[in-house]
Write a protein that binds this DNA or RNA. Sequence first.
DNA 1: AGTTATCATCGGCATATGGCGATGAATGTT
DNA 2: AACATTCATCGCCATATGCCGATGATAACT
Lengths: 141, 141
Amino acid sequence: MAMNVDDAQPVSGRLPGVGPAPVLLFHSLADPARLAIVQLLADGERRVVDLTKELGLAQSTVSGHLACLRSAGLVDAHPHGRSTFYALARPELWPLLAAAEELLTASGTTTTLCPEHHRPEPVAVCGAAVRGCTMHHSGRH
Amino acid sequence: MAMNVDDAQPVSGRLPGVGPAPVLLFHSLADPARLAIVQLLADGERRVVDLTKELGLAQSTVSGHLACLRSAGLVDAHPHGRSTFYALARPELWPLLAAAEELLTASGTTTTLCPEHHRPEPVAVCGAAVRGCTMHHSGRH
DNA sequence: AGTTATCATCGGCATATGGCGATGAATGTT
DNA sequence: AACATTCATCGCCATATGCCGATGATAACT
């Protein structure tokens, strides 16, 4: 479930230099469960059990997905007591999801990947400063 | 090699609504070969043979990857004579890749996914209008 | 100490993925 | 007409992926 970074030659060995990092990043987002986790974490950090219940997946499965997201650097794990809290680690994720959403919209698909508060201004006639992309920790410790 | 759209219940059936489209999109980018193809096509459209040589992969493999990218709506196929030209179909892809690049940079990885002419302005003090993200067809028919 | 809760990790299993060569259709060339 | 080229598709195979239950470690609670 992991996809190691150290698998050297990605395909045949002489591909143009794409590097494993972007592949890992996109791979981590190329799964319904992981994408759902990201969306849930957008609302605030969660414990593994919480996600387990919200997703309807086995605990081991959720842990696996979280490990994947963590290896991609998208989430952070904060152990607290006997539970572990997971939270989004990269605010830069929202522009990415917004861009994906826009691409899909342009392709004719209606999708919602970003919560409203993380979407960029519709057009921004210029003047308004930085918006969206704010990390908000709704404490639960 | 395709990943069908009609596989209904993605994981267990009761996941929050993420929809198959974004998964398909990210999946299409989560492969070194396909990412390489995208980069090559950024420079202009290619035939399958061209990509086959440039990637060092079997023709059937390349065709498969192109089918995947096409099913994700990222590339278009223009049959011409006995060869087929493939070109990028979505200019909106560049903001996506730029966002991914930024995220990875923020994560500490140095990666280059967009050609310079497709990158957004470094900061854009405001004033300069729309830039980058232009589709350029360097004809070869 | 004993019990309960939470979670990471492991092994097993069914399926998906990505690689290849072979085949056949379509088209251009001789 | 015969041949060559290009490409989509198919079957095969090795590996990766995602799911689960079981196990064991850690920490809290009685």
